[in-house]
Design a binder for these strands. Sequence first.
DNA 1: AGGTATCTTTTCACAAATGAAAAGGAGATT
DNA 2: AATCTCCTTTTCATTTGTGAAAAGATACCT
Lengths: 272, 272
Amino acid sequence: MSRLDWEDLNLFLAVAREGGLSAAANATGRSPATLGRRMLGLERELGRELFVRHGRGYRLTGEGQSLLSELSEVEARIARLSQRSGIEGLPLVKVSAGTWTTLALLRSFANLVGTPPDIRLRFVSGERVMDIAHREAVIGFRNQRPTDKTFAGRKLAKVEFAPFGAPDAPRLWIKVLADTPSARWLAKYAEGDAVCEVNSPRNALDLALAGQGMALLPTFIGDSEAGLLRAAQVVPELTHDQWLVVHEADRHIPEVRRAIDRMCRVLEGPRG
Amino acid sequence: MSRLDWEDLNLFLAVAREGGLSAAANATGRSPATLGRRMLGLERELGRELFVRHGRGYRLTGEGQSLLSELSEVEARIARLSQRSGIEGLPLVKVSAGTWTTLALLRSFANLVGTPPDIRLRFVSGERVMDIAHREAVIGFRNQRPTDKTFAGRKLAKVEFAPFGAPDAPRLWIKVLADTPSARWLAKYAEGDAVCEVNSPRNALDLALAGQGMALLPTFIGDSEAGLLRAAQVVPELTHDQWLVVHEADRHIPEVRRAIDRMCRVLEGPRG
DNA sequence: AGGTATCTTTTCACAAATGAAAAGGAGATT
DNA sequence: AATCTCCTTTTCATTTGTGAAAAGATACCT
């Protein structure tokens, strides 16, 4: 026994209201042929005659009319599910990026969501690297090309790290206690005492901006801060590629595509 | 903008209740792969995260839970639509046949619907010949092979007409006023007065059974009436084939197939 | 009546959705 | 800690469903 396909009920509403297949086809974006077949299937599934098919369209039978009124109420409930107002109504794209990429993206937020906004961004980050296969994130930023051909990658500009500080700041390091390559490098090779140790990378930037010391920052962050100067050369060991990674299946979804294009423009544009 | 597919909501109920794709696959008769994809699509369409996918199954998020409770009510309404009790719940097969074939079928009604009944038969007849393409009837009886290859035909035994009457009935015709070949033949060639003229062929049989005269009947009807005897030879001009006709697309639908098989057994068995 | 416009149904080539089996993981169990 | 089991995800061949265009029908209009 095959179970009722709820989508047939949805299509029934269109055919019943429009009074025929052609008009309903316009309303639903499906072809008259499909609608005709599905209405036949629905009548069979329900074991009732819903329409009288005459040359000029579909007319409802008594049973069809009562189905129409019942389904209208169902439709109202379902409509409420998808009707979300304002930004909630926009398609959602989940982005997983590191501290600095996230910061750069947030600073160009307006360019990312469009004017007027046509997508909703959610930045997800955590200890764990987000799993794109399970869609914890849809768009991820990684430091290497995706291995699996399930994922599509787009290469971005290289990321370089250098020490940054305010012009008159003491030449002391601001250390970051985190499990990142730059923090590990700092722990290992930094000379002299640290002026401070911070838990979160983002705080190192704030401290550097306050003129308290040198922070090891990506150049695309440090160079864009008016109050900071490079306190020394780039640290070559920390230079790495950056890749934007998407699940191959998500790649062509309109809102995902838009988000990718805009992010690439933001991240690649000013850095060459 | 693509619209919400209601069937996704139906599938969501299964995944949400069963707590995973595999169990839901059993419940719905679809594969885990399909369910996984459609839940991904639903989340996208709604712009909400409904599940947390962990290694052991799908767990609902807060939004998922509220969707579940809302949809449960929708489901109850929809369930009421398809739940029909008793005979109303059985699959419907519409049959279009002439007076005599209908009569023969009705006399074997129990054999047609099965024990216990597993189909519901509706005999539709009218002035007009029912249109199988538009599904005014699903199974039709015609006197010639279907022309169009859209329709499938099954040849039945030939139909022969002869005069029938009670043993001591007067040898006067019971005339039928209808637009049928046998009625036209009677109007043209019948000798002697008519004892009566009736509007409906079925009444001619009743009148013959009452011993009032001779009715021109198909032999498969007349011979099966204990109270009637052939009053003369078969009328050769009226002999014709009989075909059972179905739309090719309906042919393999289970209840249609059953109905066809049983009708053929009933109509061919005792005569062939 | 005849013509015309519009709607349904059919045909057929194509695209999208599906399922089976394999691969990959996560949690449970010993 | 290693193994096992169960569940999800991926792959890919297949099926199902779909749409465009043609054909067929019916009501409307002149």
